[in-house]
Design a binder for these strands. Structure first.
Lengths: 192, 192
DNA sequence: TGTACATCAGTGAACGCGCGTTCACTGATGTAC
DNA sequence: TGTACATCAGTGAACGCGCGTTCACTGATGTAC
């Protein structure tokens, strides 16, 4: 039997775990390898170099992220604008649960962002958002605006609030920073 | 004559310059010291350790940032909502001109964010934003919402779009990413 | 069934590196008397 | 005006560190005949 990519899997999982624990900057190949019970030269065999491993982690994280957000989309019990609000909550919730992965996903200095899997997951998520925005527009929300423009804005809003929350910047100036507050902030600014 | 803090000034300036050139993660005390024509142990004398220097750079950058944004505020030729849009443009423009400093300002792993100067500049900027929001509300914009909630939302929106733009994430899915497009995205989502 | 060969995942030792920090020191400047 | 002392910015040598990468290798597995 051939366990093709078995160690590869283990390495990605261990690296992702460490990224959440100590941050993408503090990761070392030697540490990850040791935690997999393998020599420190083994990762090079599967990923070439450190950036290769981090790229694999980022790509897989983005897939998980897209999947996580996707569970919100298309829920028939929610009207489109409610889905948008719920999506914002899910965005912040993901960053809360997997802080290192979320950070890594948006750190082009550490990741080869032209990686096929990474790019595919990113595009998939954005296009799903555009689809939701179009459904919101059919419900009368900003019906005359470019859906991609609105999608970019919604993304930016969710991303910014999430990031300010994650870095602690928001907490310095605003009392409430739990997920309900995040949604309230988003709703207020888009007037929904 | 006592040139008190002369080298201190030089070190902060050189460090800020290098942060923009190579990124906050790639900075080394030895490099900064060498560029100031000084031994590599000199920075320790003024800043204690590396975090001390980076904290000084971040604090000063935040002051510059607040000043930069402040030039927009209170312009009597612009109505409050126009000021808000212009503020968003200035936000993104600062990150474009000083990418490393902007990044560093929101990297709590590299900076002692409880530093007095850093906290003061951050608070000053946020409170100024709250003031602008209140003037917008007097003009009929979301008159019944909590101004701090709206300010947090406006901040998040500007921050997120700026960050997605800086990391290249926005450019992967949206055609236009210049400053006009940034403003258009912001205007669309807040319906202004 | 058995032999020869190819593939390839993982080893472990070694290399070389720049780094932050420490520390006893020098030498200039300022202060007390 | 001169002497003794204190302060303090900056030096330079040394320490110790973990790191990513390289490379000849071993040994197991799969394939051809």
């Amino acid at each position: 039997v051939h366990f093709d990519g078995d160690l590869r899997r283990t390495l990605i999982d261990a690296a992702a775990e460490r990224v959440d624990e100590v941050g993408a900057d503090a990761i070392s190949l030697r540490d990850v390898a040791a935690r997999c019970g393998v020599s420190h030269a083994a990762p090079a065999h599967h990923f070439g170099d450190k950036t290769g491993l981090l790229t694999a982690v980022a790509a897989e994280s983005f897939e998980q992220f897209a999947l996580h957000l996707g569970t919100v989309l298309g829920d028939p019990t929610l009207r489109p604008l409610e889905q948008l609000a719920t999506l914002g909550r899910a965005y912040a919730a993901f960053a809360e649960q997997w802080p290192g992965r979320f950070d890594l996903m948006f750190r082009p200095a550490l990741v080869r962002t032209d990686d096929a899997a990474y790019a595919a997951a990113s595009t998939f998520a954005f296009e799903a958002l555009v689809g939701l925005v179009e459904r919101c527009q059919q419900d009368g929300w900003h019906p005359d605006d470019d859906p991609r423009l609105l999608a970019a804005g919604a993304w930016g809003l969710a991303h910014g609030v999430t990031q300010l929350r994650a870095t602690g910047a928001l907490a310095r100036h605003h009392a409430g920073v739990d997920l309900d507050d995040v949604v309230a902030i988003g709703r207020a600014i888009i007037g929904a």
